[in-house]
């Protein structure tokens, strides 16, 4: 069997935050593999550990509170958690780059946008300031910003333009892996589409693998090959778009779909997931979703099911699938 080269391999990653209120269990043992060109969407509620996972890949968990307790993160053959400072710096931006969530705060207010893009180019391509600036201007044009704006400061730009600049920074060095953390939340719908199109065409050109973090299932459907559904620091279901959207297995994933507005039946009520998100400082013995799950049985509260492979591509973590014939109610197609 020819082992295909992986761009990203995360094994049993555990990340905690030590806060004054106790230990926050942000990521609790996740595994993820990503091949070249492949794109995976990570969906889940706020606080599910999506961004923490992304930051862990860059080894950028906020210090000193954030602690990677366990796991390995291999990007392009290099373990991001153990390589030297200087190797890590070379990987950041070049091996893996990230589009940050909030464009309003992600840009440094005291440098021109051109400089901020050029800096990345200068570090990784070893070119002169002038060439780096030239490259930055090209990048601006790629993301659809007039080159004259290269010498503008972030405060002179609209929110949408700032987001494009953030994207330009992330794309500047053709990283092997692109992490996009809610790249479109700050944008209005028409621009969302443009931005997604931009990322898509860029990835096609450079065969970039991508992790797209979002809670918008629609965007996932448009953009991704595979989907990881995260809840309380755990991937509860993983599969292809088909698997997740049409062969939904996990009760939480079901809940996510039910809470979407139904475009076909506009008068149908939204069904929110009952209960509250788990207190992140308490790690239960059983299933993390047990308290909110409508299929819960006693076993769920005592043991947390390991991954069950439903098919070659589809994995779910729910003990009820030990029972032959069990399935959730949501049945589409």
């Amino acid at each position: 069997m020819v082992k295909e080269k992986l761009v990203l391999e995360i094994n049993d990653l555990v990340v905690n935050y030590e806060t004054d209120n106790g230990t926050v269990h942000a990521v609790n043992g996740i595994n993820l593999k990503l091949k070249q060109k492949q794109s995976v969407g990570i969906v889940g509620e706020t606080g599910a550990g999506k961004t923490t996972t992304a930051l862990a890949i860059l080894n950028l968990i906020p210090q000193p509170t954030g602690i990677i307790k366990n796991g390995t993160i291999i990007v392009d053959g290099k373990n991001m958690l153990t390589i030297s400072e200087s190797d890590l710096r070379m990987m950041r931006g070049k091996g893996v780059s990230m589009i940050f969530q909030d464009p309003m705060t992600a840009l440094n207010p005291v440098f021109t946008i051109g400089e901020q893009i050029a800096e990345s180019v200068r570090i990784h391509e070893g070119v002169s300031n002038k060439d780096a600036m030239q490259r930055a201007i090209e990048m601006l044009e790629i993301v659809g910003i007039d080159k004259d704006r290269a010498y503008d400061y972030p405060h002179q730009l609209s929110g949408g333009m700032k987001q494009r600049v953030v994207i330009a920074i992330a794309l500047a060095c053709q990283a092997k892996l692109l992490i996009a953390d809610e790249p479109t939340t700050a944008l209005d719908v028409t621009i969302q589409a443009q931005v997604l199109e931009l990322i898509r065409s860029y990835r096609e050109k450079y065969d970039t693998a991508m992790i797209l973090i979002t809670h918008d299932l629609g965007i996932v459907a448009e953009t991704c090959d595979e989907v990881a559904v995260m809840y309380a620091g755990v991937i509860v279901e993983y599969g292809t778009l088909e698997d997740i959207f049409n062969r939904t297995k996990h009760p939480y994933t079901e809940g996510l779909f039910n809470s979407l507005p139904n475009i076909i039946e506009r008068r149908s009520k939204l069904t929110p997931i009952p209960g509250m998100v788990l207190d992140p400082t308490i790690l239960p013995d059983g299933c993390v979703f047990a308290d909110r799950c409508s299929y819960v049985i006693d076993t769920c509260r005592t043991t947390f099911q390991k991954d069950i492979a439903v098919s070659d591509t589809h994995i779910v973590r729910c003990s009820r699938y030990q029972e032959p014939g069990f399935n959730i109610k949501r049945m589409i197609a």
């Binding site: 990987m91 940050f100 969530q101």
Partner: peptide
């Protein structure tokens, strides 16, 4: 956030 952005660039 922009400090994180800088670090993520490999600065």
């Amino acid at each position: 956030d922009y400090i994180r952005t800088a670090r993520a660039k490999g600065v």
